[in-house]
Simulated assay, not measured.
Amino acid sequence: MIKTAKFGWITLVLVTVLFLSSCTGTQTADSEVASSPTESTPADTTSQTESTNTDLPILEGRATVELSVNGSAVVIEVNGEQAPITAGNFVDLVQRGVYDGTVFHRVVRQPEPFVVQGGDPLSKDPNIPTQQLGTGSFTDPETGEARYIPLEIKPANAEQPVYSQTFEEAGITDAPELTHTRGAVAMARSQFPDSASAQFYIALADLPFLDGNYAVFGQVIEGMEVVDSIQQGDVIESAEVTEGLDNLKTGN
């Protein structure tokens, strides 16, 4: 995953923190490296991707989402043109109210700025132990089952995204259309490519070593200073689709 020695062991630790982020709730890098990412991942992600892609929400175009955090707004432009399934999943969850009352359970600024991560539906429940935060996914009330989405990354100038594979696995050397610039919004997942569900993260700095490995689907366009001030445990008071909801298509 790491193709240059420039970032060294610090990058390795940070990537590992994100890599296990969907399945661990601990805060230190050492404990996350030792954690097992098996609790919240689907048993067979390949067959799941093939069978559910047509049922997943799709964003045909762009939308704008506003998060309220600590009484201030974070405005995200969601890009369904480059990541239609990932963007559609996020907008659909916002519209359902899934993110209202969830917390940012992971904030990594040391040894260098990395990400703030939230969106775990489990974090709405104050009775859930802190160490379990980061293990949750969205459960579709219609099916009673967790909804996962395929890893979706579009190479620059390509007609279609690559699904269910990192660029390295697919043998792609081009940069993605959407990269991990500061303020990029992307989906957290475990080591299984198709294990993203509800948890997302916002990049606190340019993170090019994540490009081609995680699905970026949006960008903070207002309120990055609010993101910079987020602390672990801060609550997403509300999340609202303010523009582009008519671009969301659900079902078949």
Rank of each mutant, 00 (worst) to 15 (best):
S164M: 03
P141D: 06
V108G: 00
D125N: 15
I85P: 02
G80L: 05
D55I: 08
P84E: 03
Y148Q: 02
T26I: 13
L245N: 09
G171D: 01
S164W: 06
D211P: 05
E225F: 01
K124Q: 13
F200C: 00
F90K: 07
F167M: 05
V216H: 10
T26C: 14
F138E: 07
D55P: 00
V78E: 10
G183E: 04
A29L: 04
S123A: 07
T16F: 00
F114Q: 00
S72T: 02
D211E: 10
V17S: 10
E243K: 11
A43R: 15
G8V: 05
F192A: 13
T24R: 10
D206N: 14
D246I: 02
E142C: 02
T16Y: 02
L133T: 09
G101Y: 00
K249W: 01
F90L: 03
L122D: 09
L151N: 06
P176W: 00
E60K: 15
V227C: 03
Q191W: 14
P126R: 04
G251L: 09
Y201Q: 07
V115P: 08
Q48M: 15
G97F: 08
A205R: 12
G251I: 07
D55V: 06
P37H: 05
V13Q: 13
N252W: 12
A184W: 07
Q165S: 09
D174A: 15
F138G: 04
V220H: 01
R106V: 06
A184R: 09
V65L: 07
P84G: 07
A158L: 01
A5H: 11
K154H: 03
F104K: 08
T166D: 01
T242P: 03
A170M: 11
I76L: 09
R189H: 12
E237G: 05
H180W: 04
Q199H: 03
N157F: 14
V227T: 04
T38C: 12
G144A: 10
S68F: 03
R147Y: 01
E112S: 13
M1P: 11
K6G: 11
R109N: 05
R109P: 00
